[in-house]
Each structure stands twice: as structure tokens, then as C-alpha cells.
Computed example of a mutant assay.
Amino acid sequence: MTDKQRLIITIAQRIFDQKGFQNTSILDIVKECKMSKATFYKHFETKESFICEIINYYDEKFLEIIHSII
């Protein structure tokens, strides 16, 4: 995952916290990221792949926490 992808995910999470997952659109995310939809889709092929990347990102974070505890 690139730094830009991590930044997009972090910003998206902040919007999800404010508006809820169901009420957040890609347009909301790209506006907050100050990028075009085309740029967003260069980093994530589809909305579904974006969601999968979010899940993978937080899975990795969770595993890091577990390993630090062990």
C-alpha cells in the first residue's frame, strides 16, 4: 500500500466517523482529499477494491497490535 492510499483511507475513516459508512460517497472522500475522482481511481480500481483495502489496512493494524502485546 502506498503512502497516498494510506492518506486516502485515513481521510475516509474520518468522514465515515462523521457521516457513517452508508452516507459517505466517493465524492465526499475525493473532495476532502482535494483530488479528482480520476486520481482516486488510479489508486483504487473500484469502490469495492477501496473497501477491501480499508479492511486489509485495519487487519494489518490489528495484527501489529496483537504482536506488540505478545
Score class of each variant (00 low, 15 high):
Phe62Thr: 05
Asp3Ser: 13
Glu64Gln: 12
Thr24Phe: 10
Phe62Asp: 08
Phe21Arg: 12
Met35Val: 03
Phe21Lys: 14
Asp28Leu: 07
Leu63Met: 12
Phe44Lys: 04
Glu53Phe: 05
Lys19Cys: 08
Ile51Lys: 11
Tyr58Arg: 14
Glu48Asp: 15
Lys42Phe: 06
Asn56His: 09
Glu53Ala: 11
Ile54His: 00
Lys61Ile: 13
Glu48Leu: 14
Ser25Lys: 14
Thr10Tyr: 12
Ala12Glu: 02
Ile29Glu: 00
Val30Ala: 06
Glu45Cys: 04
Gln22Ala: 10
Ile29Ala: 00
Asn23Pro: 01
Thr10His: 09
Asn23Leu: 09
Glu64Val: 02
Ser25Glu: 09
Glu64Phe: 03
Gln22Ile: 10
Ile8Val: 11
Val30Trp: 00
Thr10Phe: 08
Lys19His: 13
Lys42His: 10
Lys31Trp: 00
Asn23Ser: 06
Phe40Tyr: 09
Ser36Asn: 01
Gln5Glu: 15
Asp59Val: 10
Ile66Phe: 08
Thr2Asp: 14
Lys37Asn: 07
Phe40Glu: 08
Phe44Thr: 04
Asp28Ala: 07
Ser36Lys: 01
Ser49His: 04
Ile9Arg: 05
Phe50Gln: 05
Lys47Asn: 06
Gln5Leu: 07
Lys37Phe: 00
Lys47Gln: 10
Phe21Pro: 00
Tyr58Asp: 07
Tyr41Asn: 02
Lys42Arg: 15
Lys34Asp: 12
Phe50Glu: 00
Lys31Arg: 13
Asp28His: 13
Ile51Met: 04
Gln5His: 01
Ser68Lys: 15
Lys61Asn: 11
Ile66Cys: 11
Glu32Pro: 03
Gln13Ser: 14
Asp59Trp: 06
Phe40Asn: 06
Ser49Phe: 02
Cys33Asn: 02
Glu48Gly: 01
Ser25His: 02
Thr10Ser: 15
Phe16Cys: 00
Thr2Leu: 10
Cys33Gly: 07
Gln18His: 07
Lys4Ile: 06
Ile8Ala: 01
Ile54Trp: 05
Ile51Tyr: 09
Gln18Val: 12
Leu7Gln: 13
Glu64Met: 09
Thr39Arg: 12
Asp59Gln: 10
Tyr58Ile: 06
Leu63Asp: 12
Ile15Pro: 01
Ser49Tyr: 06
Lys61His: 09
Phe40Thr: 05
Arg6His: 08
Glu60Asn: 13
Lys61Thr: 04
Glu48Phe: 06
Lys47His: 11
Ser68Met: 10
Ile69Glu: 05
Gln22Glu: 15
Gln5Ile: 07
Ser68Thr: 07
Asp3Asn: 15
Gln13Cys: 11
Ile26Gly: 07
Cys52Asn: 10
Lys34Thr: 03
Ile70Leu: 09
Ile11His: 04
Lys34Cys: 07
Ser25Met: 06
Glu48Lys: 15
Ile15Cys: 06
Ile29Asp: 01
Glu53Ser: 15
Thr10Gly: 13
Gln5Lys: 15
Asp3Thr: 11
Gln5Phe: 02
Phe62Tyr: 11
Tyr58Lys: 15
Ile11Cys: 01
Ile51Val: 13
Ser36Ile: 02
Ile66Ser: 08
Gln13Leu: 14
Ile55Pro: 05
Thr24Ala: 05
Ile15Met: 08
Thr2Tyr: 07
Ser68His: 13
Ile69Thr: 01
Leu7Trp: 03
Ser36Glu: 05
Arg14Gln: 05
Ala38Ile: 11
Asp59Ala: 10
Phe62Cys: 03
Ile8Met: 15
Phe50Leu: 07
Phe40Trp: 10
Ile11Ala: 06
Tyr57Gln: 15
Ile65Ser: 04
Ile26Thr: 11
Gln5Ser: 04
Ile70Tyr: 14
Ile70Pro: 01
